[in-house]
């Protein structure tokens, strides 16, 4: 009797990856060898059961629904690697320059921040007055917070700066939308 069929060959049979010659040899051997014929049968059963147990049907009209949805979408531009690298280099350079010139830049930057804060305070004061709220109440509240929690000042400055940036962006975006519309 010829050499029996290995599990790996049965496995290849299961996934239809046996070449025609090997398939013919396997079938011929299984006609002579009862053991291998039994194994082939069990592998065949497994193949059938695997294909039924794991079968899954795509919902009707799935492709059409996807295609309909993408008609309302547009492909987003990708930020190129060069832009990302440039941004990273700029951040690192800025950090290095700030580290070197910190003794000179420190007072200048804090002066700028202080002026910005003052300007914002004026805007806020006028805004609150305009809508009928007494600014002194809020100023006293803010003064108390700052007096008790001085460490919060940088956080407050950063938050204010972010709010201003967001505000400007909203105005710019609104203008862009109006222009395109």
């Amino acid at each position: 009797m010829k050499r029996c069929i290995t599990s790996k060959d049965f496995n290849r049979f299961l996934e239809d990856s046996l070449d025609p010659g090997s398939l013919a040899r396997l079938q011929a051997h299984c006609r002579e060898c009862r053991t291998c014929a039994g194994k082939l049968e069990s592998w065949r059963k497994l193949k059938e059961k695997l294909s039924t147990a794991t079968s899954i049907a795509i919902p009707d009209g799935f492709k059409e629904k996807v295609m309909y949805r993408i008609t309302n979408e547009r492909i987003l531009p990708v930020r190129s690697v060069e832009v990302k690298q440039g941004l990273a280099v700029a951040i690192i350079l800025t950090a290095i320059l700030y580290g070197i010139f910190r003794p000179f830049l420190g007072p200048v930057l804090s002066g700028m921040a202080s002026n910005l804060l003052k300007s914002l305070s004026v805007v806020l004061y006028n805004f609150l007055s305009a809508i009928g709220i007494d600014p002194s109440v809020l100023i006293r509240l803010f003064g108390n917070i700052m007096a008790n929690f001085q460490k919060l000042l940088p956080l407050f400055m950063v938050t204010t700066a972010l709010m201003v940036i967001a505000f400007i962006l909203l105005i710019v975006k609104g203008r862009t939308v109006r222009q395109s519309g």
């Binding site: 996807v66 993408i70 979408e73 492909i75 987003l76 531009p77 990708v78």
Partner: peptide, 9 residues
Amino acid sequence: FVKAYKHLA
């Protein structure tokens, strides 16, 4: 699929 389409680039 919609995400894939939007980020095809």
